[in-house]
């Protein structure tokens, strides 16, 4: 049993927003009672549509946002308050990369300067050692000396994302939060970045919190995944189980919506309606207005988690009363 590096315990985060220009303030529950754990050296994928709270969860995991309730443990100790020296020391071990590498890079600094910058800030090693270390890191992500002296605009999207990765990894973090890291990249380039990320994970024993809406990439990189809907986790367990036999109606719809090249005729679950607004969260199970098997109790009562024999947790009334033992063979 591997120890967990990151634990989220019942975290909730709400923002207040105005309804209309002069309307009264209403709370928006971006994240609601989310508990997760990420094991050392593994990848946990957070999956969901826009507004599901997956990015907010990632930011809370790093201490960039404070939860209103609940707490975050990094290697068993609670995260110190943001912007304190203790937090900054801990943050060196936790890094984040985002979807748009051009926005994450300084357009007027060379790649090597940006990759070396964390070492400069934390004053690690002599100047020449820092430079060598930065070059070695760039080499590890597949960029050479000529890329090192380039400015961001001179690189392609995939190269930029690898530069961002090099900068995030130069402090040798233990945890990397990736928020849609390959979504903006073309397929052939996406494969390059996914491979580099997985190789480095193995080499450096990195733990990854991988936020993505692309289930094909999630299947490729993660051991476990959590599906979020309107701020709550609806299903959590081993990735291959969730994708091969999804249990929650929302996970089922998500899996069936994945467009697969070379597959044309099949039953696709077309959900009714739109993902609802987090500011107007439906009562009971938030998914009930779009759910094909919703029952009266789903409108009133929010479902609790039940654990399936394969270790999965599912929050659905239908699953609770009806354990899918017959589906095991499929």
């Amino acid at each position: 049993m591997t120890a967990s590096i990151l634990d989220l315990h019942g975290i909730s985060r709400s923002y207040s927003t105005r309804q209309g220009l002069f309307g009264k303030k209403v709370p928006v529950h971006a994240v609601d009672e989310v508990s997760l754990s990420l094991k050392e050296g593994q990848t946990l994928a957070l999956v969901g549509e826009s507004g599901s709270g997956k990015s907010t969860t990632g930011r809370i995991a790093l201490g960039l946002e404070r939860p209103n309730s609940g707490y975050v443990l990094f290697r068993g100790t609670e995260l110190p308050a943001a912007d304190t020296p203790a937090w900054r020391r801990m943050r060196a071990q936790m890094q984040m990369i985002y979807q748009d590498p051009l926005a994450a890079l300084d357009r007027r600094l060379s790649i090597i300067d940006q990759v070396r910058e964390p070492l400069d800030i934390h004053d690690i090693g002599s100047a020449s050692k820092r430079n060598n270390k930065a070059l070695a890191m760039l080499d590890a992500v597949g960029l050479n000396a000529s890329h090192a002296t380039s400015l961001p605009y001179q690189l392609s999207g995939g190269q930029r994302q690898r530069a961002v990765l090099a900068r995030a990894l130069i402090m040798q973090p233990a945890l990397l939060v990736c928020d849609e890291p390959v979504s903006a990249l073309d397929v052939s380039i996406q494969a390059q970045v996914v491979n580099v990320l997985m190789d480095l994970q193995k080499e450096l024993r990195l733990s990854l919190l991988f936020i993505s809406h692309d289930l094909k990439v999630v299947r490729q990189v993660s051991q476990r995944m959590a599906v979020m809907y309107l701020g709550r986790i609806v299903e959590f367990g081993e990735t291959h189980l969730l994708l091969s036999s999804p249990t929650h109606p929302y996970t089922k719809a998500l899996v069936s919506a994945v467009p697969v090249a070379g597959r044309r005729t099949r039953e696709r679950i077309i959900l009714k309606g739109e993902p609802p607004n987090p500011a107007a969260r439906p009562t009971g199970c938030a998914f009930h207005p779009r759910c094909a098997i919703a029952r009266p109790e789903c409108v009133r009562v929010s479902p609790t988690f039940s654990t399936l024999p394969d270790g999965r947790s599912v929050a659905c009334h239908a699953v609770h009363t009806n354990p899918p033992t017959k589906e095991v063979g499929s």
């Binding site: 392609s156 995939g158 190269q159 073309d186 397929v187 052939s188 380039i189 996406q190 494969a191 390059q192 996914v194 491979n195 289930l215 094909k216 990439v217 299947r219 490729q220 994708l243 994945v258 697969v260 090249a261 070379g262």
Partner: peptide, 24 residues
């Protein structure tokens, strides 16, 4: 062929992705 090999599969066994080297 390269595009399809670079695509993560959604069924069957996991395999290492085969990127197309270089860029457009």
């Amino acid at each position: 062929q390269g595009l399809l090999a670079a695509l993560p599969p959604f069924e069957g066994a996991l395999r290492r992705l085969i990127p197309i080297e270089g860029q457009v």
